[in-house]
Measured scan of single mutants.
Amino acid sequence: MQNSHSGVNQLGGVFVNGRPLPDSTRQKIVELAHSGARPCDISRILQVSNGCVSKILGRYYETGSIRPRAIGGSKPRVATPEVVSKIAQYKRECPSIFAWEIRDRLLSEGVCTNDNIPSVSSINRVLRNLASEKQQMGADGMYDKLRMLNGQTGSWGTRPGWYPGTSVPGQPTQDGCQQQEGGGENTNSISSNGEDSDEAQMRLQLKRKLQRNRTSFTQEQIEALEKEFERTHYPDVFARERLAAKIDLPEARIQVWFSNRRAKWRREEKLRNQRRQASNTPSHIPISSSFSTSVYQPIPQPTTPVSSFTSGSMLGRTDTALTNTYSALPPMPSFTMANNLPMQPPVPSQTSSYSCMLPTSPSVNGRSYDTYTPPHMQTHMNSQPMGTSGTTSTGLISPGVSVPVQVPGSEPDMSQYWPRLQ
C-alpha cells in the first residue's frame, strides 16, 4: 500500500499530492522566468500547473527564495509595531506611495530583511487598517496617535501638521516623493554593498519588468496595427511575429492590442446598429396606417339613396333571421326581375335548405315592403301603392349592394327569390 497518492495534472505532468515540487523543477521555473518566458509558457514547457508556477515565482520575487514554506503551523507575524509605524510614516510623507514602493524602502533602510519582509498584500492590509482606524477615531485622537508614531512633539492640530517642515499644504506631496526618490538612490547604494547585491538587483529588475506600465504606442505603430486590423481581426502567430519585427513591439503586446481592438470594434458596431435601427424607425405612426385595407374592405359607393341603408337594423327591421341572411350572402350585381318571367313554384328541397333563413311567422307573405323604405322617402312611396304591378321595390342582398326588384302586385311571395340566388 502506497503512503502517498501520485497523479497526472491537466498538462500531463506527474505530481505527488500534498508534497511540494522538487527543487530542480523550481530552479528551472526561475531560470525560464529570467530568460523572459511568460508564466503560461513555463507552465506548458515544464508541465506544471499555472497556479503552481505563479505561486513559486511570486514567492521568489518577494523573498528571493525558491524553497517551499513549512507545511503546517502558523507563519510568524511580520507586521510588527515597528514595521507598522514605518509604513504609516512613509504614507504620511508621500500619500500616493504604492505598497511595493513601501516594501522596497523597508528593505533599503534595513527595517526588514528578506526573511521577515511583509508581502505587498500585508502592507496593503496595514494601510487599510490605518485608514479604518482613522475613520473610527476622532480628529484629536487621530492626531495624537500619528504624533506618537512619528515621534515628534510638534502641533498636529492642523492639517499642514501632517507634513512636517512644510508650510504650503500643496507642497508636502512633492517633497515626500522627492525624499522617497532619494531613498531609492540609497536603495541602490545599500544593496550594492550587501553580499547578495547582484541577486537582489536582478530580482528587482525582473520584478519591475513584470510590473509594467501601460504600453505607449507611437503613431507609426498605431498606423501599422490599424492597417493589419483592417486586413483581418484575428491575425495568426506568423502575422503577429512579422508585425512585431516590423514595428519593434513584443508579440504578446500585439496580441493584447488586437484583443482590445476587437472589443472596441464590437462596441462601435453595436452603436452603429442602434443608430441604423433608430433612423429606419419613423418618429410617429401615421393615422391612416393604423387601418389596414386588408382588414377593412372598402364599401362601394351607393348608386341610389335607398342603398345607403345596408342592414335591417338601420331600417328599423327587427327580424334577425333576414338580417343574418342578407349579411351572409355574397355580393351580387344589380339585376331586375321582369313581370314576364315565369313564376316557378319553389322546389321543396330548395325551400327546406333555406328554411332556417325565413321567419317562422306566416304573415311574411302579407307584409308590405314599406318597412324598408327610409324616412325621407315615405311620402313618395305612399303616393304609389304597392298593389300595382309596376311598383318597384329595392331588396338588399349584402352591405353596400342594392338590387332593384320588380315585385308582382298580386302576391309578394318571398319564396320566388331563392331559386334565382343559387
Score class of each variant (00 low, 15 high):
83 V>H: 04
121 S>Q: 09
36 G>E: 03
8 V>W: 04
91 K>T: 04
51 G>S: 15
104 D>Q: 13
69 R>I: 03
50 N>H: 06
38 R>Y: 04
35 S>N: 10
69 R>A: 07
142 M>L: 12
63 T>H: 03
13 G>R: 08
100 W>I: 06
148 M>W: 09
138 G>S: 12
102 I>A: 01
51 G>I: 00
42 I>C: 03
83 V>K: 06
24 S>N: 11
56 I>Y: 05
58 G>Y: 12
101 E>L: 08
114 N>K: 13
77 R>K: 10
57 L>V: 06
84 V>T: 07
64 G>K: 06
41 D>E: 13
126 V>H: 04
52 C>Q: 01
33 A>Q: 07
141 G>N: 09
129 N>K: 15
26 R>N: 02
5 H>V: 11
30 V>T: 05
93 E>G: 11
77 R>M: 03
8 V>I: 10
41 D>P: 00
141 G>V: 11
12 G>V: 00
40 C>V: 10
72 G>H: 04
43 S>M: 01
125 R>P: 05
49 S>Y: 01
122 S>C: 07
58 G>T: 15
88 A>F: 10
144 D>Y: 09
27 Q>C: 14
14 V>W: 08
29 I>M: 13
51 G>D: 01
85 S>P: 03
10 Q>N: 06
74 S>E: 01
126 V>R: 04
67 R>P: 03
99 A>I: 03
15 F>W: 06
28 K>D: 06
22 P>C: 06
27 Q>N: 08
94 C>P: 05
62 E>L: 09
139 A>R: 13
18 G>V: 00
31 E>V: 08
55 K>V: 07
65 S>M: 08
74 S>W: 01
48 V>S: 01
61 Y>S: 07
89 Q>F: 13
74 S>I: 03
134 K>S: 09
63 T>S: 06
5 H>G: 13
73 G>K: 07
27 Q>S: 08
91 K>Q: 05
146 L>P: 11
11 L>Q: 07
45 I>L: 10
92 R>Y: 15
68 P>T: 00
52 C>L: 00
140 D>V: 12
53 V>S: 03
132 S>N: 12
114 N>D: 09
13 G>W: 00
143 Y>W: 10
117 I>S: 12
40 C>P: 04
34 H>F: 10
89 Q>V: 09
131 A>Y: 08
114 N>E: 12
128 R>V: 02
10 Q>P: 03
16 V>I: 11
139 A>V: 09
90 Y>I: 15
102 I>Y: 07
9 N>H: 02
108 S>P: 06
9 N>I: 01
72 G>K: 06
67 R>Y: 07
15 F>G: 01
143 Y>D: 11
5 H>T: 11
70 A>C: 08
121 S>T: 00
140 D>M: 11
94 C>A: 13
141 G>E: 13
115 D>W: 08
77 R>W: 01
69 R>Y: 07
28 K>C: 08
86 K>F: 10
75 K>G: 03
3 N>H: 12
107 L>W: 09
98 F>K: 12
47 Q>M: 09
66 I>E: 02
77 R>G: 01
108 S>N: 13
97 I>E: 15
70 A>P: 14
106 L>A: 01
98 F>A: 08
11 L>C: 05
2 Q>Y: 09
51 G>C: 06
99 A>V: 03
142 M>G: 13
6 S>D: 07
131 A>G: 07
11 L>T: 02
60 Y>E: 00
20 P>Q: 01
119 S>R: 03
148 M>P: 15
96 S>Y: 10
148 M>Q: 13
73 G>D: 01
15 F>V: 02
70 A>G: 12
138 G>Y: 14
71 I>Q: 15
79 A>K: 02
105 R>F: 10
124 N>S: 07
144 D>F: 08
55 K>Y: 03
39 P>N: 15
136 Q>F: 12
70 A>T: 10
14 V>R: 15
141 G>S: 14
56 I>W: 07
53 V>Q: 05
135 Q>S: 12
76 P>A: 08
150 N>Y: 06
45 I>S: 10
29 I>S: 02
95 P>N: 12
109 E>R: 12
98 F>H: 09
130 L>Q: 10
90 Y>G: 03
90 Y>F: 14
90 Y>D: 03
70 A>M: 08
35 S>A: 13
93 E>L: 10
64 G>Q: 05
137 M>Q: 14
116 N>Y: 09
72 G>C: 06
94 C>N: 15
112 C>D: 09
134 K>R: 11
39 P>A: 11
78 V>P: 02
64 G>N: 01
112 C>E: 00
74 S>N: 01
123 I>N: 05
113 T>Q: 14
93 E>W: 05
133 E>V: 09
96 S>M: 07
69 R>K: 14
78 V>W: 01
76 P>T: 05
131 A>Q: 12
56 I>D: 02
124 N>K: 05
124 N>F: 01
118 P>V: 05
136 Q>H: 10
55 K>G: 05
100 W>T: 07
96 S>R: 14
54 S>G: 06
88 A>I: 09
108 S>T: 13
74 S>C: 06
86 K>T: 08
7 G>V: 07
102 I>R: 01
91 K>P: 01
115 D>E: 12
8 V>C: 03
104 D>G: 09
30 V>W: 02
27 Q>F: 11
32 L>I: 01
55 K>R: 05
5 H>D: 07
125 R>W: 01
123 I>S: 01
95 P>V: 15
142 M>W: 13
5 H>S: 12
91 K>S: 05
114 N>Q: 11
95 P>M: 10
127 L>Y: 13
125 R>G: 04
68 P>Y: 03
87 I>Q: 00
92 R>A: 10
99 A>W: 00
2 Q>T: 13
108 S>G: 14
109 E>D: 11
84 V>I: 09
68 P>L: 00
84 V>K: 11
50 N>K: 14
41 D>F: 05
87 I>N: 01
57 L>R: 02
26 R>Q: 02
114 N>W: 08
14 V>S: 14
44 R>Y: 05
35 S>K: 10
124 N>L: 06
81 P>L: 07
88 A>H: 07
77 R>H: 05
46 L>H: 00
60 Y>C: 00
107 L>H: 15
93 E>R: 08
93 E>T: 11
18 G>R: 02
33 A>V: 07
86 K>W: 07
79 A>F: 03
46 L>S: 02
118 P>D: 00
108 S>D: 12
23 D>I: 14
87 I>Y: 02
69 R>V: 05
47 Q>Y: 06
118 P>A: 08
17 N>E: 00
82 E>W: 12
40 C>M: 07
134 K>A: 08
24 S>R: 12
14 V>Y: 14
126 V>N: 07
76 P>Q: 02
93 E>Q: 11
133 E>R: 14
132 S>D: 06
34 H>A: 14
55 K>L: 00
13 G>H: 04
70 A>V: 08
125 R>F: 04
31 E>D: 15
19 R>Y: 07
28 K>W: 05
90 Y>H: 14
100 W>G: 06
112 C>Y: 01
23 D>T: 09
49 S>Q: 00
149 L>H: 13
24 S>F: 10
103 R>D: 02
82 E>S: 09
23 D>L: 14
71 I>R: 15
144 D>A: 10
118 P>N: 01
87 I>M: 08
78 V>R: 06
140 D>I: 12
13 G>T: 02
143 Y>G: 11
115 D>N: 11
32 L>F: 08
107 L>K: 15
143 Y>H: 12
5 H>Q: 12
93 E>D: 09
78 V>L: 04
31 E>A: 08
108 S>Y: 10
118 P>H: 00
2 Q>L: 11
52 C>H: 00
51 G>T: 15
77 R>E: 01
54 S>E: 02
78 V>I: 06
44 R>M: 05
63 T>Q: 05
5 H>M: 10
